[in-house]
C-alpha cells in the first residue's frame, strides 16, 4: 500500500521529472501515430479499393509484420543506424527520432492491416454506388476512408495504445537517456530494476489512465455513431 500511496503522491505533486517523461512518451507516440496514419491509411484505402496483383501478398506481409517482436525491430534499427551501419551517417541513434521510427515500424502494420479489413467491408458494400456513379479510384478511397472514420479511430487509438506501451525497441534505439529519450515504459523497466517502485508504479498508473481514457473515447464515439445510425 505504501508504494501505491507514494505513487499517487508523486503523480499529484506534479513532479517535473515524471511529467517530462509522460509528455515525451506522448510526443514520441503521437508523432509515430500521425506518420503511421499518413502512410498507412492511404495504403489501406488503396488495398481495400482495388484488386491489384499481389494484394493478398501485401496484406499477408502487413499481417505478419503485426507479430514482429519489438526487440527485433530495435536490434535491426540499431544495426542499421549504428555508426558502422549503412545509415549511420544520419546520426540519429539514441535520439527521439529513431524512437519514432521504431514505433512507426511497430504500429504501421496494425494501422494498415486493421484498417484495410474495416475499409474492405465498406468498400464492398459501396461498390455498386461507385460503379453506378463511375466514381474515380481516388474518390472511392477518400469516400471509403471518410465513411469508415469512426471505426478507423478505434484502429488508430489501438495503434496509439500499442505505441505507448512499447518498450523493447525504444530501449535499444533510444538508450533511455534521462531528459532526452527516457519515456514511461523504459523508466518503468529501469526504476523497477533499481527498486524505485513508487516512480515505476506512478508511471504505470498514468499508463493505465491513458489506456482507460483511450477506451472511453472509443466507446463514446461508437455510441454517438450508433445513435446516428451512421454505422
Amino acid at each position: 500500500m505504501g508504494v501505491l500511496s507514494d505513487s499517487f503522491r508523486l503523480i499529484f505533486s506534479f513532479n517535473s521529472d515524471l511529467y517530462e517523461i509522460i509528455f515525451l512518451s506522448l510526443k514520441i507516440s503521437s508523432y509515430a501515430l500521425v506518420i503511421s496514419c499518413i502512410i498507412g491509411l492511404p495504403i489501406a484505402g488503396f488495398l481495400a479499393s482495388t484488386n491489384i496483383t499481389g494484394k493478398k501478398t501485401i496484406i499477408i506481409f502487413f499481417n505478419s509484420m503485426m507479430a514482429l517482436p519489438p526487440v527485433f525491430v530495435g536490434l535491426l534499427l540499431y544495426i542499421l543506424f549504428s555508426q558502422t551501419g549503412p545509415f549511420g551517417f544520419f546520426e540519429i541513434l539514441y535520439t527521439p527520432s529513431i524512437m519514432v521510427i521504431a514505433q512507426i515500424i511497430i504500429i504501421l502494420p496494425i494501422i494498415v492491416s486493421v484498417s484495410t479489413e474495416l475499409m474492405q467491408h465498406i468498400f464492398e458494400e459501396y461498390k455498386e454506388i461507385f460503379d453506378n456513379f463511375e466514381v474515380k479510384l481516388i474518390n472511392r478511397i477518400i469516400t471509403t476512408v471518410f465513411d469508415a472514420r469512426i471505426s478507423l479511430i478505434t484502429c488508430i487509438l489501438t495503434g496509439l495504445g500499442r505505441a505507448l506501451s512499447e518498450v523493447g525497441a525504444i530501449i535499444i534505439v533510444g538508450g533511455n537517456i534521462i531528459h532526452y529519450t527516457r519515456v514511461m515504459t523504459t523508466t518503468i523497466a529501469l526504476e523497477t530494476s533499481k527498486g524505485n517502485l513508487s516512480m515505476a508504479m506512478s508511471l504505470g498508473i498514468v499508463l493505465i489512465i491513458i489506456s482507460i481514457s483511450i477506451n472511453a473515447i472509443v466507446m463514446i464515439m461508437k455510441t454517438i455513431s450508433k445513435k446516428n445510425f451512421y454505422d
Partner: peptide
Amino acid sequence: NITFLRRNVFRNLSYPMEIK
C-alpha cells in the same frame, strides 16, 4: 440492391454531383 453511404439524406443525394 439499394445501398446508401453512411451519411444523411442530403449528402447521399449530393454525392453523385460532388464527385463530378
